[in-house]
Design a protein around this nucleic acid. Structure first.
Lengths: 353, 353
DNA sequence: ATGAAAGCGCTAACAG
DNA sequence: CTGTTAGCGCTTTCAT
């Protein structure tokens, strides 16, 4: 008969009493430590069962200095970051990997600089072993707030600020191979025989946009500036840029858009002007954001990145930092800091190029 | 000169020493307890500042049995729940209100029954003061797992299972006035002089769909079954239902769709068949999901619900439960349990009806 | 108004 | 292999 109705939750002590052993032995069994006579271990496990014992986390953390929790910090300068499918996938990857490591996800939603102090307090107050942050906008000082807390942190996406200040250890991050992927996209267009390849770039305050632009330039060393137009990663932005491009260089025969949404916008304008894709103009996107890319008219050739994988790798990287430096990583700067990870991308050929 | 570089983080003890008072006094100041000589209080605050002291949460929780954290449990039978704008808004509301109450949001992402044990362990292990859950699908046993942990919980959306079993205290939830809103939608159509008002209902395993259907029936007591078609809350589902309706009752002059997405689908089909909205057929949706509703062709008349508000109210309700029963609510079932909250809806008139 | 002391539930040496 | 013993850092009576 379970004594779960006794009012107060059972402690280690109670389990020990019932099993007729010491608290230490119970602790060993509960934590899977070797070196307990099987007979005793069984008795303990049974007592745990009967009492419905669940270890008290606070008490444990107090002594181990481990919290079994990781903060995911979401800054939200843009309104829709949460409903961004891209972001969702990344959080999904993080959540899954965290579960594997028996760690909890604490969501820290930052709505503005007014929240910074709260974040710092939380991070500094011994709640989490580490943090995961996204380096979208970096002009608001949040990154330095995070770094100031000394909590081991891994960033998602290459930060826009210098990742290794003097003295400081480098900031680990994981990102897609934006530059390499962009190169592959453009090379594909070149291989197709295209000679006037335009580029619709993303917002210059995002490193992914910058890196993709750089990849484009790597292949097309001295491109005509008229083949360049800037967008904002939205469909309308892409449409607008495409219109501009068509005006500047009506003879263009290909366009590489820095993301799928802008490519969709470009496709729309191309269609409106009666230009055929890929016959007149070949189009390549970036992201392989499903179902957008696959259902485009025509289906979009693009660069796929493994977003969920990025999330998982962020966690693995963090766990590596934690297990290497130990829970007191914050006190003594780690000697070896694990590097960042750049995840490979892949060209997905569909009909648009 | 801040001693933040001393390696180990400062404790209450250290602050006490520096301020020349006892630990108890520091504790009082830090927790804003009255009854400390201003002079001492100032000295303490200064020491806190200088040392960069942040209270250790685990130690505090161990004694207070409060965790300053609330779990948000997200079950994910549907793939896209996270990127659902509806859901995003609700979480936003929760997050904001939680911040106000100085509580953290711990995200518990449940991917299947395999995760149930983990969830139970976490909830039972003393991490959170309460939980917030969404009662979308209830056939997988998660609700009972949650209830089994005895952690005070508020549900989002009216649960589909009985909310007050024998003996048990009722499950508090917050929901929109789906039924009332539906009634208002249909009454509006009636007031417009429409006489053959069809309804596209949502999936019957969601109480919101059921309640909206009931609202429709409240007004149209004996409607022709041919005026009824079922959808699945998606645009395509709405289109399909509309086509079916048109075949069954080509003479219909209005349709109330159980959500905006289905209304959009209906609009599309109506347009394809050359029927004019609202002249030939008036259309009303539900949700007022922006920007979908406002940008529809024509702009959609719909029932607005305050989704962010629902999130906030969920938190307030939970806090009420917590402050009433105290941290040991789980041991002794509360005497007075706060009821659920039904949030008002509002008819938003645009062009479609 | 302040301090001394006890103890929250657990883990981790250290003995045995 | 097991038990004893010290705390982890904080709050909270209880004296003063």
């Amino acid at each position: 008969m379970p004594e779960s109705t006794t009012g107060t939750r059972p402690t280690l002590e109670a389990v020990a009493a019932r099993a007729g052993v010491s608290r230490a032995t119970v602790s060993r069994v509960v934590n899977g430590n070797a070196g307990v006579r099987p007979e005793f271990a069984d008795r303990v496990r049974q007592a745990v069962q009967e009492l419905g014992y669940v270890p008290n986390h606070a008490a444990r953390s107090l002594v181990t200095r481990r919290y079994g929790a990781v903060a995911v910090i979401i800054a939200e300068p843009e309104f829709r970051i949460f409903s961004d499918p891209f972001f969702e996938q990344q959080v999904r990857g993080i959540s899954r990997e965290l579960t594997k490591h028996d760690a909890q996800l604490v969501l820290l939603w930052v709505e503005g600089p007014g929240d910074h102090e709260r974040i710092a307090r939380y991070l500094g107050g011994g709640h989490v072993d580490g943090a995961l942050a996204f380096s979208v906008h970096n002009d608001d000082g949040l990154p330095s707030v995070i770094r100031g807390t000394q909590v081991p942190t891994v960033f998602g996406g290459r930060p826009g600020w210098p990742t290794s200040d003097e003295g400081d250890s480098p900031v680990p991050y994981v990102d897609s191979d934006n530059r390499g992927g962009a190169r592959e996209a453009v090379r594909h267009l070149v291989a197709l025989g295209r000679e006037r390849i335009a580029h619709i770039s993303g917002p210059p305050d995002q490193t992914s946009a910058l890196d993709r632009y750089d990849g484009y330039r790597d292949v097309l060393l001295d491109t005509d500036p008229a083949l360049l137009a800037g967008g904002d990663f939205t469909e309308d932005g892409g449409a607008h840029a495409m219109a501009q491009l068509l005006q500047q260089r009506p003879d263009l025969d290909a366009v590489f858009a820095a993301n799928d949404m802008m490519a969709i916008g470009a496709l729309r304008v191309l269609h409106e002007r009666g230009l055929r894709v890929p016959d007149d103009v070949a189009v390549v996107g970036f992201d392989d954001m499903l179902p957008v890319a696959a259902n485009a008219e025509p289906p979009l050739t693009t660069i796929r990145q493994d977003v969920e994988g990025m999330g998982r790798v962020m966690v693995r990287l963090l766990m590596q930092v934690l297990n290497q430096d130990g829970p007191d990583a914050r006190t003594e700067p780690g000697v070896r800091t694990p590097g960042s990870v750049i995840m490979p991308t892949e060209l997905v050929r569909r009909a648009s190029a």
